[in-house]
């Protein structure tokens, strides 16, 4: 059995314009990095929201490590899913510092474990010394790294990334893409990356799925 499974997932918004996602199935092994490629409006971000539990599918089921996240009878709330997500605009809490952002998801650990994990994450993304800064005092690339550290800190079972490069300048993008690839390999984490840029997906991912409209 695969580590992560989506089976016949279907979803449509209330507005009645027909399903955005229809009978979508996907299997992934642990540590695999899968890219989902498609033009805007094809439902790729919706797919991530379904996995994260921010939307409820009309049909189908999602399993992770044998545990059901959602099926027609059950629905695990996003806070209990163990899914990490990096949002398109990173959504770093503007009222918290870099440290506080990363510590945010570590509330279940003891104080010592928290401090230790914080140190690990800051060094993983090479942001030591930036802990006391606020998000608006960082560059786009730095913000992305903090978002990455924040999502990874609670050790999620799977990491979801929604267009991680869309907010970056073109010349920065190439370098950051390489960095991210290294980070992901280092962390050895199962990842789904959604993008409209073929090159992004080809650089980073083990496998690419194309979504048609």
């Amino acid at each position: 059995m695969s580590f992560f499974q989506l089976e016949n997932v279907t979803f449509g918004y209330d507005t009645g314009s027909g399903p955005v996602v229809r009978d979508f199935s996907l299997r992934m092994e642990q540590g695999e990095i899968v890219g989902i490629l498609g033009s805007s409006g094809c439902g790729k971000s919706t797919l991530l929201r379904l996995i994260a539990g921010l939307e409820a599918p009309a049909g189908g089921r999602i399993l992770i490590a044998g545990k059901v996240l959602v099926d027609p009878r059950q629905f695990v709330e996003p806070e209990h899913r163990g899914v990490g997500m990096i949002f398109q605009d990173y959504a770093l809490f503007p009222h918290l510092t870099v440290e506080q952002n990363i510590l945010f998801g570590l509330h279940r650990l003891t104080k010592r474990e928290r401090e230790q994990r914080l140190g690990e994450m800051l060094s993983l993304v090479q942001m030591e010394g930036y802990g006391k800064r606020y998000p608006h005092e960082l560059s786009g690339g730095q913000q992305q790294r903090v978002a990455f550290a924040r999502a990874l800190a609670p050790r999620p079972a799977i990491l979801l990334m929604d267009e991680p490069f869309s907010n970056l300048d073109a010349d920065l993008k190439k370098k950051i893409r390489e960095d991210l690839k290294q980070l992901l390999r280092h962390a050895h984490i199962t990842t789904i990356l959604v993008t409209h840029d073929k090159e992004d997906a080809e650089t980073i991912c083990d496998r690419i799925i194309r979504l048609a409209r």
Partner: peptide
Amino acid sequence: RYAEASRLLGMGMTRTFFKVDLPL
């Protein structure tokens, strides 16, 4: 999106509200 990020980091609706939404 801030609230959603907080939910995914393991905070329920109520804790999200007090830690993220209310300050914002």
